[in-house]
Design a protein around this nucleic acid. Structure first.
Lengths: 150, 150
DNA sequence: ATCGTTTTGCTGTATTTACAACAAAATAAC
DNA sequence: GTTATTTTGTTGTAAATACAGCAAAACGAT
């Protein structure tokens, strides 16, 4: 059984480091690009759903969003038929940043897949989807306090 | 061209969160397990090589190691024919923790690959290795201050 | 051998990240 | 309809993470 965990971990760290470095030019601090991208792609999303999508802590996502709001890149609006939820929308400035971020992400993805044929790339994606399902399921178990048998 | 970056990112975050939660039982804080494992597997390694392997910042690795030393899980020894380098070795207590960590990692890997046949798993690993090469190359470019064309 | 460059370790500083715990609103159970 | 549970937002606190910059040792070029 080959080890894929470490490979995934190191690739992810390298990609994240690259993005964080490059987005300093956009005056974005560490991790901020993740949230901004998702808000631009799903305007109206609430913070907790964002956190679940990204698999980060609720409060981490909340504070990242708070910062984006302070920087004028994201807006919080009270949901129309709900007094509790605050929906998130990008501002014009936020959308402008998004264009660059998206272009960078596409480029990084391209680089990552350079040595793969298009069928290999498709297969990689398929396999990762399966892996993702399993891992997400376990992460939810652990979040709920369950212990895994190892 | 499928997006594999996000998949890799979310899988990595989930796996890391799981490990961090579970290793609180071993009195290990966030990220510490990463360094301890590598030191146990390559005794005598120096901090900077550790950082390069894990693709994290030099100082991040240095401080994580420092903490492991304070906790009595790792030892720093002056290299025999070198006054500058400090080689890292696990203590008995560190090795004991390593056994559990390794078992957990193997389990997580097993879970991740549950839905894959053994040939699929092998192929996934192969494809990830190719991806890793490309991404690492770009990460080094960016670290050296080069700008990528996107 | 000498000088410039790289490697390695370290500290200061700012920031993100995660956990715990709370309150208020919404939803579910009965 | 009332009560219990879940969802959502927020704050306090502790810790990791990353960048900049410094000094000392090692290495390379000449």
């Amino acid at each position: 059984m080959p080890d894929v965990l470490r490979q995934i971990g190191t690739i992810a760290r390298a990609l994240d480091s690259i993005s964080n470095r490059e987005f300093k030019q956009l005056a974005l601090n560490k991790g901020q690009y993740l949230y901004l991208v998702r808000i631009c792609e799903r305007p109206g999303v609430i913070t907790d759903h964002l956190a679940a999508q990204l698999q980060v802590d609720r409060t981490t996502a909340a504070r990242a969003v708070q910062k984006l709001v302070m920087q004028g890149l994201v807006e919080k609006r009270a949901a129309t038929q709900n007094r509790k939820n605050k929906e998130l929308f990008p501002t014009a400035a936020g959308l402008k940043r998004y264009v660059t971020i998206h272009r960078e992400n596409v480029y990084s993805n391209q680089v990552a897949l350079t040595e793969l044929t298009s069928t290999e790339a498709a297969q990689l994606s398929q396999l990762l989807t399966k892996v993702s399902h399993q891992v997400t399921a376990d992460w939810e178990k652990v979040q709920q306090g369950q212990t895994r048998p190892y």
